[in-house]
Design a protein around this nucleic acid. Structure first.
Length: 486
DNA sequence: CGAGGAGCGA
DNA sequence: ACGTCGCTCCTCGA
């Protein structure tokens, strides 16, 4: 198994700019061989993999292993993760993920059907209004045609471009919607169709007819940041931001009517890790004394006694965005303030949390010297453009370099947590199951009898993964469906 | 079939 | 030119 890691990770080093890699691309590249695709064996996902004929499934699976071995033979060993990470995180995690994939997640198909009907009705309504306002029939799903109608025919003011033409994304449409109702209706239409096709229909298609469950695949070697990704379906981008999206989460239910869903999520883990990694006294101090971090920053930014809603929003956003080495320009656009104000907020942030700035600068200078960044657990990520003469490319590389240790460390922490929790459930012979991971959140299908021990022990495990000057905090959510776990 | 535009999450 | 990392949908032209 270590060979697979060497092979895949070695490929990163040879192609550091690559965002992703896959075995079928490697097969094509090295052997000019076309592998059987997942879509092919499942007839474009008409079948679940378990329903694929055994001989066909065997060939598909064997090919996977065989090609991996062949690719490995071609490559030198090029370790970018150390043995500790490999043996103590990635390899033990394999079995945890296998278990989560086998367990599956229960989805209420009747609920989905209900949502589908509602969406269909709203889509029809919006469609009618839009076509009336446009005085003509066109395909609302085509950005090109939307642009032609809005800017070519109706002469709405345009201000943002894509590579090829004027942009008609939601930012543009929202800004137009105050004066031109058609823009708002297109935004609505897109929201409804997005939910219907990507979530309702796609999820329904993947529900197993017998078990009423869906099977997702967790990918361990896809991301450049050590996070997991999930496909067929992607469980990590189920809507959560507005009431309509929440209805999708209502369809995620416990496997048995006597069970309940329990979610644990790390609270503000990225800012906490920033405090830990940078060792900034003021940032650490805020967490140590349980002063709300947003309020702390607000105080530094505005230096007064009473807080307005707008100031709190700004403080929260500054905490959030500074982690990503955002520019004054970027921040001003994100939080709707002037360029000067944005610059001032960023400067004040660094003024009050000086070691954060030091930490960022050191991360960049180390990267310039070594061509890689390293994380708390000793993983390396090569960034080949870090010394590029083009300042745009260099800046982008710097942002990658800065984001990496934080995102990567948080990914490792939750991976270790998953392994420990999984072992705990096993040792105690508990029937409750870990069913989902969404980057900083773990979701469990819990047998009612076990709720107390789960509530008590799992946060304890998750909060004590590493020895740090400040505590990691886990929030607990309990519900009859995933929506209630928020 | 793949690129481009769009939109969902952390 | 202006957060990072992902997945999936749809259109449109080769």
């Amino acid at each position: 198994m270590s060979k697979i890691y060497d092979t895949l990770l070695g490929e990163y080093i040879q192609n550091p700019g690559r965002k992703w890699l896959s075995l079928d691309l490697l097969a094509k590249k090295y052997f000019d061989y076309k592998m059987i695709s997942y879509d092919e064996v499942t007839r474009k996902k008409e079948l679940n993999f378990v329903e694929v004929a055994l001989d066909e499934a065997s060939i598909y699976s064997t090919e996977d292993v065989y090609i991996t071995a062949k690719v490995y033979e071609l490559q030198e060993k090029n370790q970018i993760i150390n043995d500790k990470v490999l043996n103590e995180i990635e390899l033990p995690l394999l079995e945890v993920l296998k278990d989560m994939e086998i367990t599956w997640v229960k989805v209420d198909s009747e609920k989905l059907a209900e949502i589908w009907k509602y969406l269909e009705q709203e889509i029809k309504k919006e469609e009618k209004i839009i076509l009336t306002l446009a005085w003509e029939n066109f395909n609302i799903k085509s950005p090109k045609q939307v642009g032609e109608i809005l800017f070519g025919k109706l002469w709405l003011p345009e201000w943002k471009k894509t590579k090829t033409w004027f942009s008609v994304d939601s930012e543009v449409l929202e800004s137009l919607s105050f004066r031109y109702p058609i823009a708002k209706h297109i935004v609505n239409y897109r929201q409804y169709t997005k939910l219907q096709s990507t979530y309702v229909e796609w999820l329904s298609k993947l529900i197993d007819k017998n078990t009423k469950k869906i099977h997702t695949s967790y990918n361990q070697t896809i991301t450049t940041t050590g996070r997991l990704s999930s496909t067929n379906p992607n469980l990590q981008n189920i809507p959560s931001s507005d009431w309509l999206g929440w209805t999708i989460r209502e369809a995620f239910v416990p496997s048995d009517e006597n069970n309940i869903l329990v979610a644990f999520d790390y609270s503000q883990i990225e800012v906490r890790l920033l405090a830990i990694l940078s060792e900034d006294e003021n940032l650490l101090g805020s967490f140590k004394s349980w002063i709300d971090i947003h309020k702390n920053t607000w105080y530094f930014l505005f230096w007064k006694d009473d807080i307005t809603n707008d100031e709190r929003r700004i403080a929260k956003a500054v905490n959030f965005w500074v982690i990503y080495w955002i520019s004054p320009f970027g921040l001003s656009k994100m939080i709707w303030v002037s360029l000067g104000e944005a610059r001032e907020y960023i400067n004040k942030f660094y003024e009050k949390y000086p070691k954060v700035l030091e930490f960022f600068e050191k991360t960049i200078s180390d990267c310039e010297k070594n061509w890689y960044v390293e994380t708390m657990f000793g993983r390396k990520r090569f960034i080949s453009n870090i010394n590029d003469n083009n300042s745009v490319i260099k800046k982008a590389s710097e942002r990658e370099a800065i984001n990496m240790p934080i995102q990567w460390t948080s990914a490792d922490i939750i991976k270790i947590a998953m392994i420990k929790v999984w072992k705990f459930l096993r040792e105690k012979n508990l029937k409750s199951k870990m069913i989902m991971q969404v980057h900083d959140e773990l979701v469990f299908d819990v047998v009612l009898d076990e709720i107390e021990i789960i509530k008590k022990e799992i946060p304890e495990i998750m909060e004590n993964i590493i020895n740090t000057p400040i505590k990691l905090i886990v929030d607990i959510w309990i519900g009859k469906n995933w929506r209630e776990c928020k």
